[in-house]
Write a protein that binds this DNA or RNA. Structure first.
Length: 365
DNA sequence: TAGACGTGGGC
DNA sequence: TGCCCAAGTCT
């Protein structure tokens, strides 16, 4: 099978020049037409594609940041959120624990808090409506270049390009680019390419189609070039595709061991609320050093990953009533930032997924 | 600007 | 199993 040779990286000068779409990418019109035809015939029907409500679209986009559709839809996060907080006013008035509880398990919890900040900011705008421009959207918390382009094009069909992981992969393959996509000058160049290729009359469909192409056809490991609707436009179609895009090496995984206490008395459990950047506002079991827990019985061990850490979570039994009969290795039962909570309230408290799972396991009987 | 930020799924 | 990846943003 005869393939276009993998062309060398597109010279920056050819891209940066201010020229017409046809001169920059001669196959742009063909690409747009084939992409749109494919999407009209094969595109999936997601809840956020059945609405032009900017709030509903924003919620979906924020949930989908670094998160797969199967998680957001299959595990019910989108439906639960839209039921609990159906509009900007409801979300703006909600309590933070209520928000975090609905978000629990999705990760990147600042997304949930920023969504509420944005709801409050929108309500405070004259008219109380979302700004109908990329610039206006970018000024809101948690809305970056991708999400601004997504809301602008999906809600109002504005001619705004967008680049996410899917689009970046499609574009580097189309252009046979071997520069690392996470380092200059690639991020800027990808946005330029997306802007040049954008179908300005049908930005909504075009952007949806481009992402879905990346998600379903132009996949990271085994791209389906043979059935790709735009393979005639692609400089990587065939074996070369899987080698793109290039990326900087991932950070090394760091091993961490957490020793925690399961302290229960009078149907109350001792918990600690996170106040730092990580998992802020969520409740965890009290953390202790290995030495402090060495003499305590080990109840449960679990493993989980958080960003580039690999965590082994040990949960030790601690009986506050017996504390003074224990050796001097026994930990203080309670520290300043730790509080007792009724076991009945446990389902209401936002908690990192691994802790929730371990507690459910331990308290089942 | 490079690092930090959660979690689950696929291979 | 241990990576890589997923509709990114913030500091």
């Amino acid at each position: 099978m005869k393939k276009k040779p993998a062309s060398p990286t597109v010279p920056p000068a050819a891209i940066d020049a201010t020229l017409t779409q046809d001169a920059l990418i001669p196959w742009a019109a063909e690409f747009q037409a084939k992409l749109l035809a494919w999407f009209r015939a094969e595109g999936r029907d997601y809840p956020w594609r059945q609405t032009e409500n900017p709030y509903a679209i924003l919620v979906s986009e924020v949930m989908l940041q670094q998160t797969q559709i199967a998680t957001v839809l299959g595990r019910g996060y989108y439906d639960r959120w839209m039921t609990a907080f159906p509009d900007v006013a409801t979300l703006a008035a909600a309590s933070e624990p209520a928000i975090l509880r609905v978000w629990e398990g999705l990760g990147y919890y600042s997304r949930a808090r920023n969504l509420q900040k944005t709801a409050q900011a929108v309500l405070a705008l004259p008219g109380g409506q979302f700004p109908e421009s990329v610039e206006g959207l970018l000024a809101l918390h948690g809305i970056g270049p991708y999400t601004a382009g997504a809301v602008a094009s999906f809600a109002w069909n504005l001619p705004a390009p967008l680049v996410d992981g899917n689009v970046a992969r499609v574009l580097t393959r189309l252009m046979a680019c071997d520069l690392p996509i996470d380092q200059p000058p690639m991020p800027r160049r990808l946005w330029e390419w997306a802007g040049i290729l954008l179908n300005r009359q049908d930005a909504r469909l075009h952007n949806s189609a481009l992402m879905e192409l990346g998600q379903r056809i132009c996949t990271p490991r085994s791209p389906a070039c043979l059935i790709c609707p735009v393979n005639t436009c692609c400089a990587s179609a065939g074996p070369a595709a899987a080698s793109r895009p290039k990326k900087s090496p991932a950070r090394a995984t760091v091993l961490v061991i957490e020793h925690t206490l399961l302290a229960i008395r009078d149907n109350k459990i001792l918990l600690h609320q996170e106040t730092g950047r990580r998992r802020q506002g969520l409740w965890k079991l009290p953390l202790r050093t290995a030495a402090e827990t060495a003499a305590l019985p080990l109840l449960h061990t679990a493993q989980y990953a958080i960003t580039h850490h690999r965590v082994t979570l040990h949960i030790h039994a601690f009986a506050p009533d017996n504390a003074n009969t224990n050796s001097n290795a026994a930990p203080a039962p309670q520290r300043e930032d730790e509080t007792w909570h009724s076991l009945a309230d446990l389902p209401l408290l936002p908690m990192p997924g691994p802790y929730r799972k371990s507690l459910n396991h331990l308290l089942r009987q």
